[in-house]
């Protein structure tokens, strides 16, 4: 599909400067470059500002419930493993409400790509603390400062068994685009934690902050070393926010384990009703 063909009748309603705009553009660029279209791709989203993206990309999609995008995406992949399946999720959405699904989807190594729109707070509900909000940050729900430590999504993903774990900054659109393509090419559960400023409600995690404090993991970094990756995933601070691929591992996906779909997708399997008589006989 061309950029023109990916257009829908709707213009994004995100705030000017919102990181979602960059993610949207990077995703569309990746789709054009890789030929993701309505014959080979399905998108899923949770609920939050990120979820609006489905209305602005003309790729067949499922807008699910807050926190529940990953089981829907997993179900799609098991039913049709021919599809590229992308789950757009938010930090409150996926790490809070959907935390259990995040852990277990990673553990099972479904062959899906999870794009975590991480603005470290709840933006659609006008700025409350999220599981990714740093300790001490003042939000509408924590006016005296967030008393909780944040989750480290990358560490959480690695510990859960994800086989491709990366971080991007929404402002670096080309790098983000390449990472999205690489994550989709990876066989297995791929997570990109995308740092994206909420320009309206988040006065701490701003474009300027990310631009000043992020750096890319270099050639000397070995993303196959799980222990190193785990340590790296906890690195977050002044001049110390790593970007790039933290961890990758080649491991059979869940879908590869099913002989039922080894030859063709589940939805193309004709019901094998001829075996029913033998099955019924077991109950005589």
């Amino acid at each position: 599909m061309t950029q023109e063909e990916l257009k829908t009748p709707f213009t994004p309603n995100w705030c000017p400067g919102c990181g979602n705009l960059n993610i949207w553009a990077a995703f569309k660029n990746a789709a054009v470059q890789e030929g993701w279209d309505n014959t080979n791709t399905a998108l899923v989203a949770g609920i939050g500002c990120h979820g609006h993206i489905l209305n602005f990309v003309k790729l067949t999609s499922f807008e699910g419930l807050h926190g529940r995008a990953l089981p829907v995406a997993s179900g799609i992949k098991m039913a049709n493993n021919r599809l590229n399946v992308f789950a757009h999720v938010g930090d409150g959405d996926c790490l809070g409400e959907g935390g259990n699904h995040f852990v277990h989807s990673a553990r099972r190594n479904h062959d899906i790509t999870v794009l975590l729109h991480d603005n470290t707070l709840y933006a659609l509900t006008t700025g409350q603390t999220s599981p990714a909000t740093e300790r001490g940050m003042k939000t509408k729900s924590t006016p005296a400062g967030n008393p909780d430590d944040p989750v480290y999504p990358l560490a959480w993903a690695i510990a859960s068994g994800a086989t491709f774990v990366a971080r991007a900054y929404s402002g670096h659109m080309d790098k983000l685009m390449n990472l999205i393509i690489e994550a989709n090419n990876h066989k297995g559960f791929a997570l990109i934690d995308i740092l994206q400023p909420c320009v309206t409600f988040n006065k701490v995690c701003t474009h300027a902050m990310y631009q000043q404090n992020t750096y890319y993991l270099g050639d000397d970094y070995d993303p196959t070393n799980k222990k190193e990756a785990f340590m790296k995933a906890y690195e977050f601070g002044e001049k110390k926010i790593p970007l790039g691929i933290f961890y990758r591992e080649e491991k059979p996906t869940l879908e590869e384990g099913y002989v039922q779909i080894a030859e063709k997708p589940l939805i193309d399997n004709e019901p094998k009703l001829e075996g029913l008589t033998d099955l019924f006989k077991k109950y005589t």
């Binding site: 419930l65 799609i76 049709n80 939805i267």
Partner: peptide, 10 residues
């Protein structure tokens, strides 16, 4: 949710 995803896919 998985069942819904699978059903959506056909």
């Amino acid at each position: 949710n998985m069942s819904i995803g699978a059903s959506y896919a056909g």
